[in-house]
Computed example of a mutant assay.
Amino acid sequence: MSKLISIVTPCYNEEGNIEELHARVAAVMATLPYDYEHICIDNCSTDGTVAKLRKLASEDPRLKVIINARNFGHIKSPYHAILQANGDACVLIASDLQDPPEMIAEFVKKWEEGFKTVLAVKPESEESKLMFLARRAYYRLISRISEVPLIQNATGAGLFDRAVLDILRSIQDPYPYFRGLLCEIGFPIATVPFRQPRRTRGITKNNFYTLYDIGMLGITNHSKMPLRIMAMAGFALAILSLIAAFGFLIAKLLFWNEFQLGMAPILIGIFFFGAVQCFFIGVLGEYVASIHTQVRKMPLVVEAERINF
């Protein structure tokens, strides 16, 4: 009996890409000696994506569809679909075609070589240079401060063996930084480099908030370094303030009539320390929010409907 591979593609307002995605996945899997299931999870699209998924599922029993009751975000929805996979391996690939489905064959090849985790990485990209450089800078930062080695420039697409899926199910993380979680598990990770193409149809669903959300999630889930920097910086600023206070005291005693402090240093000091406090409180708040998410034990998503399961 041939092994089963689960292909998972999260969808949100991708009516222009879903038919091509389905066709390209089917074409790739036709070249491989494995059976497969294709799981599409729709995160409450507002366009015609669900209608097209229903039509495709009626024609192809391998295509399974999960329709969420509402939009549960770009982190929880794909993760939930991965946990529903029944295959001996699961492939996660974006529905916007910026992760070419043809990479599935390369993922499977690495899996056959014995790797339990395979990740796509993009050392080059056709996206805007400013965004690409910002992403690279972030990956370098998080790699330096993380408590586990992370794969730089990983897109999130890749292949995960059933052993990895079983571990993910046992962790029960309600809001995971998925790329970091895979590295934390500890299995050797193979990489498949590719040049990421531009989106040809539709618009990106990422904005500043979603990018900030996943960026902070990677930091709070995998590093205590910001908290320790806050403690050390507070100590250093306290010493600096004490030295400055003694300096002003000595200057005033030596030059009582000539030395005038004025308002400028006072105002600058107030604004500086106020800004530092707001920054530190914000970082601390991110960690508290992460803890709050964990202790609520909310489900990853609530499903409105399943098709072909």
Rank of each mutant, 00 (worst) to 15 (best):
T220E: 06
V288Y: 12
S95E: 05
S6Y: 01
R136G: 12
N257A: 13
L133P: 00
F280W: 12
P226H: 07
I66A: 10
S128E: 11
E14C: 06
E112D: 12
K76G: 06
L181N: 07
R228F: 03
S6N: 04
R70F: 08
S170L: 07
H292Q: 15
Y175K: 09
F280L: 11
T220H: 08
L63K: 03
L165W: 01
L253S: 11
C44K: 11
P61Y: 01
D99N: 14
K55F: 13
R198E: 08
F115I: 06
I239P: 00
V283E: 02
D99Y: 04
A26K: 05
V301R: 00
E112A: 10
L237M: 13
P78R: 01
I219L: 03
K129Y: 04
G269A: 04
I203Q: 12
F246L: 15
V283N: 04
D42R: 02
M225G: 00
E20R: 10
S58T: 13
G73D: 00
A23M: 11
A251F: 11
A231M: 09
V192S: 02
S290H: 15
L141I: 09
L261M: 11
E286G: 01
M298C: 13
I39K: 00
N206H: 15
N17S: 14
G234C: 06
I229T: 08
S95G: 11
N71Q: 06
Q98D: 10
M232N: 12
S125T: 12
I142A: 03
R228I: 10
F115L: 09
R199W: 04
I250S: 07
A264H: 05
I39Q: 02
G262N: 07
A231G: 05
N13T: 00
I268M: 14
I185G: 07
V25H: 07
A233M: 14
A289I: 07
H22A: 14
G234N: 11
G48I: 00
I229P: 00
R135L: 14
R144F: 14
E20K: 11
K205F: 15
S2R: 12
E286C: 07
I307F: 02
K3T: 04
P149Y: 05
L63D: 07
L92R: 02
V295R: 14
H74P: 13
D96M: 10
G218K: 01
N257D: 13
Y12K: 15
I93Y: 00
E102Y: 11
W111I: 01
C90V: 15
G156Q: 01
V164N: 04
G282K: 12
N257F: 10
I66W: 00
T200D: 13
V121D: 05
K297Y: 09
T293F: 05
L92K: 05
F178M: 13
L119Q: 07
T49V: 01
G87C: 05
Q172N: 15
I281C: 13
L267R: 06
F72G: 08
L133A: 15
C278P: 00
T155I: 11
R54G: 08
L300G: 08
P176G: 11
V108Y: 00
H22T: 10
E126K: 14
S241T: 14
I243G: 09
I104H: 03
L63W: 05
L97T: 03
Q152H: 08
P100D: 03
F178L: 14
Y177C: 09
T46F: 04
G114T: 01
G87F: 04
R306W: 02
M131H: 13
A244P: 08
